[in-house]
Design a protein around this nucleic acid. Structure first.
Length: 437
RNA sequence: GCGGUCAUAGCUCAGUUGGUUAGAGCACAAGAUUGUGAAUCUUGGGGUCGCGGGUUCGAGUCCCGUUGGCCGCCCCA
């Protein structure tokens, strides 16, 4: 048995595990439909260059990549964003906008396993293309919140931190920093929560120590936790670009507030999301207790479709991973008990009765009922025990006495009442009994 | 890539300073029970003790290596 084991970091889904996963997928899918998002899927295997183009050569170390028999460099997809950008980009002129798409898909990353992270995982991805304004962010953050609330999670359990890469960029620009320095400062901002002052070491190595006055302004901006504080900070600086960003912030937070979702969202400029391709709002969802890694993350990436060979097309998206999310549900006791019981269990007297029983069993199944029966001849006592253990609502009894009378006996396993119905009315009787209770 | 820790039946675990043929509970299966229910009793299947090497008269137990799990660091699209 130990001869062949699962590859490290990969998961096997036994029926109970798959039932849990399906439950999560079912609610995500339902929620996305309610928001008017259309589902798509795409290949698991993609050209390696698709990811190099988006993230640079160093990404290769994190990929399951190899050369196929045709000499092509390929990789198992580590994320959906480049793929969906290609799909939308290829048909951009034919798609009605805004394009609202989602997917449920499996991804692969060659990484060390940790709590909430494996080498394969599933993500719910949702993206909106063709909408440059904050209305798209409003829609997506509302969808993100509802994707978690659908399971019974509340604002006590999770929250969404909202930030803005462009705002940072314009702000630092206004403070007189050039692009290279701005990127280095953003790197420090991203790490500040974890490393404190040490986060600025990377900047110091490149450009020397950051001017103390500038650093104080960066840290003050980093501490901003409300729209009011943001407005105040920006008023002191002025400028059209910052004013436009502030207007977008007001629109986004106002929209979420009108939906009753303000309690889930916190202004937090400490979120930068390392990746350089984000161009505006960025957001991440976390558990309130701060025990788990990020539940979900996303943001605006207006340049990516064009960078990957499509037309210029604004875009926003986010993804929820299944592993951390399942951990949170588990922690909060929101993993539902699995009910998987047949509707009917057939109790069969012997070989002669089996023929009659099979006819009805198949007719019931064709009518959509879930029916079980014992494969081998068993004593009646055993069969009733098996019927009770199966969780079936009804037992259909095919014995010599019943068949001689042309009837089948139906026993309600919940109240132990019994009745006899003519064989040709078995399907109707089962339907009535199951519907009636 | 680095560090810590663990590995005995399908699951949870016991196993004495190293000592006979490695155990229990749960789960699974058969019988008691050939027309009516979760009980009870009896019985059974299942382990190269993760894998490989070493020390020893003798290793589940001690040593080395290796693989894998878990936790953390780096990274995190």
């Amino acid at each position: 048995m130990a001869q062949f084991q699962t590859l490290p970091g990969f998961r096997e889904f036994y029926p109970e595990d798959l039932a849990r996963r399906n439950h999560i997928f079912r609610l995500w899918r339902q929620t996305a439909h309610a928001f008017g998002f259309a589902e798509y899927d795409a290949p698991v295997l993609e050209p390696l260059d698709l990811y190099r183009a988006k993230s640079g050569d160093e990404i290769e170390g994190q990929l399951f990549s190899f050369t196929d028999k045709g000499g092509r460099e390929v990789a198992l997809r580590p994320e959906m964003t480049p793929t969906v950008c290609r799909l939308v980009g290829a048909k951009a002129s034919a798609l009605k906008r805004p394009v609202k798409w989602f997917s449920l898909a499996e991804f692969f990353r060659y990484e060390r396993m940790q709590k909430g992270r494996g080498r394969c995982f599933h993500q719910f991805n949702a993206d909106i293309f063709g909408e440059p304004g904050p209305e798209a962010e409003t829609e997506l953050i509302a969808l993100l919140v509802q994707c978690l609330c659908a399971f019974g999670l509340t604002e006590q359990d999770f929250y969404v931190r909202l930030s803005d890469r462009n705002l940072w960029f314009y702000y630092l620009e206004a403070l007189g920093l050039d692009e290279a320095r701005i990127r280095a400062v953003l790197g420090a901002v991203d790490r500040y929560e974890k490393y404190g002052d040490d986060a600025f070491q990377g900047y110091a190595e490149l450009f020397g120590p950051l001017d103390p006055a500038l650093k104080a302004q960066v840290l003050a901006f980093l501490q901003i936790k409300s729209l009011g504080a943001l407005e105040q900070a920006l008023a002191a600086i002025g400028g059209d670009k910052l004013a436009a960003r502030l207007a977008d912030w007001k629109k986004l937070l106002g929209g979420l507030d009108a939906m009753g979702l303000a309690r889930f969202v916190e202004v937090d400029l400490g979120v930068v999301r390392g990746l350089a391709y984000y161009t505006g709002f960025v957001f991440e969802a976390f558990d309130r207790k701060g025990e788990l890694r990020a539940l979900a993350g996303g943001g605006r990436y207006d340049d990516l479709v064009e960078k990957l060979g499509g037309p210029a097309l604004p875009a926003v998206g986010f993804a929820i991973g299944d592993m951390t999310f399942a951990l949170l549900l588990e922690q909060r006791g929101l993993t539902p008990a699995l009910v998987s019981a047949p509707d009917v269990y057939a109790v069969i007297g012997g070989p002669a009765e089996r023929r009659a029983a099979f006819a009805d069993i198949h007719a019931l199944r064709a009518a959509g009922f879930r029916v079980e029966y014992p494969f081998r001849e068993l004593a009646f006592g055993k069969q009733f025990k098996a019927a009770a253990e199966s969780g079936a609502r009804l037992a259909l009894i095919y014995g010599g006495d019943e068949l001689a009378k042309g009837v089948v006996k139906i026993r309600d396993l919940t109240d132990r009442s019994e009745r006899e119905v003519p064989r040709d009315q078995a399907v109707v009787a089962v339907r009535d009994l199951l519907a009636g209770a």
